[in-house]
């Protein structure tokens, strides 16, 4: 799978200033995003997954900054961008984003047709009737029936799932290279969620998009991802192909995350749960950030930060367990069960 990376992140550090203290939100993350792939970033709230992708679009809050590292896109380093004008060349046009809550990401005072045309005029340089035709064809693409009539309506006349379709239409109307979906279906019902995920996948094919999904729902990840990056405490602790991360995970945090899924629990017995809370990123993390919550942590986990160990060409994890000198610790039973039997579906 020799593919050219479309976006390269190198040793990225992001910090925030909060009431005079510094919070180290992203701690030296490197990532290659390949053209045409679908990458899922998984992590709990506060793990830095949203902050990480926001740096690609220059959307960090004003108290945050990239402290170190590079983001290479089209031969340019996005970290060096300082003015809004430079960012406007990237935002929407190159990298577009679909946010979690469709209730808040649309303008309630404009018809949805006008909101989509706005994006088309800005990014595709089409105007008048041409722009209108394009808008109607995009609305059809995102599965909105009767586009002529619906385009004249306002966001409040749409249901949650339909609004998310409109948001996706606006993102696609910019003809971006990369589409970032930040928890695209968390606010939606399960049946609608499945439809929206399918829609994004179809659009990805049609418009040859590269997609990044940010989510905490491992079910969604299994559905959409080619590759998975697991984030914990501002760092990618494991990254690999979808099957590798689900069926052959190496990092204890990935193990813990998978084991605490109710789908893998045995009824009547307690479900595996991770003790404690994630580390406070106001303080420098020593060693493996997950070590304090890992009952099987090694001594070295508390002292030295593990490097990445390669499991295969596509799969690597930041854990000392992969060091040849480490004792052999088997993944928990639930994780092994997932690899051999899979989860119970229905019927």
């Amino acid at each position: 799978m020799e593919r050219a990376p479309i976006l390269q992140v190198k040793d990225l550090d992001v910090k925030f200033n909060l009431r005079g203290r510094q919070l180290h939100a992203i701690r030296g993350v490197s990532l290659n995003l390949y053209k045409g792939e679908s990458l899922a970033i998984v992590g709990e709230s506060g793990s830095g997954k949203s902050v990480f992708v926001k740096t690609f679009m220059g959307l960090l809050d004003s108290n945050g900054w990239v402290d170190n590292g590079h983001i290479l896109y089209n031969g340019e380093d996005l970290v060096s961008y300082t003015t809004e004008r430079q960012w406007l060349q990237v935002r929407g046009r190159e990298i577009a984003m679909v946010l979690q809550d469709p209730m808040t990401s649309l303008n309630p005072l404009k018809t949805i047709g006008a909101q989509i045309i706005e994006a088309i005029e800005l990014h595709q340089d089409l105007h008048g009737e041409k722009a209108r035709q394009e808008m109607l064809s995009i609305l059809t693409d995102v599965g909105i029936t009767e586009p002529e009539r619906r385009a004249k309506q306002y966001p409040h006349e749409f249901s949650g799932g339909m609004r998310q379709r409109v948001v996706i239409a606006i993102a696609v109307a910019c003809r971006p290279q990369i589409l970032i979906c930040d928890e695209p279906t968390t606010a939606l019902d399960v049946t609608i969620q499945a439809q929206i995920l399918k829609l994004i996948r179809n659009l990805k094919e049609k418009y040859e998009l590269t997609t990044i999904y940010i989510t905490h729902d491992l079910g969604v990840v299994a559905n959409v991802a080619d590759r998975i990056a697991v984030m914990y405490a501002g760092d990618i602790v494991e990254i690999g192909l979808c099957e590798e991360v689900f069926y052959d995970p190496k990092h204890p945090y990935t193990w813990a995350l998978l084991s605490s899924l109710p789908q893998l629990g045995v009824k009547g017995e307690p479900l595996y749960s991770i003790h404690g809370t994630p580390p406070n990123l106001f303080y420098e993390v020593k060693g493996d950030a997950f070590a304090p919550r890992n009952p099987q942590a090694l001594k070295i986990d508390f002292e030295k930060r593990p490097p990445y160990f390669e499991v295969s060409l596509t799969h690597k994890a930041r854990t000392w367990l992969l060091d040849p000198r480490a004792p052999k610790i088997d993944p928990p039973e639930a994780v092994r069960k997932l690899a051999t039997e899979g989860v119970k579906g229905y019927e």
Partner: peptide
């Protein structure tokens, strides 16, 4: 039931 996302890529 058919819409429940399952954390198992082969099935999902």
């Amino acid at each position: 039931l058919s819409a429940i996302p399952l954390p198992d890529p082969a099935r999902e």
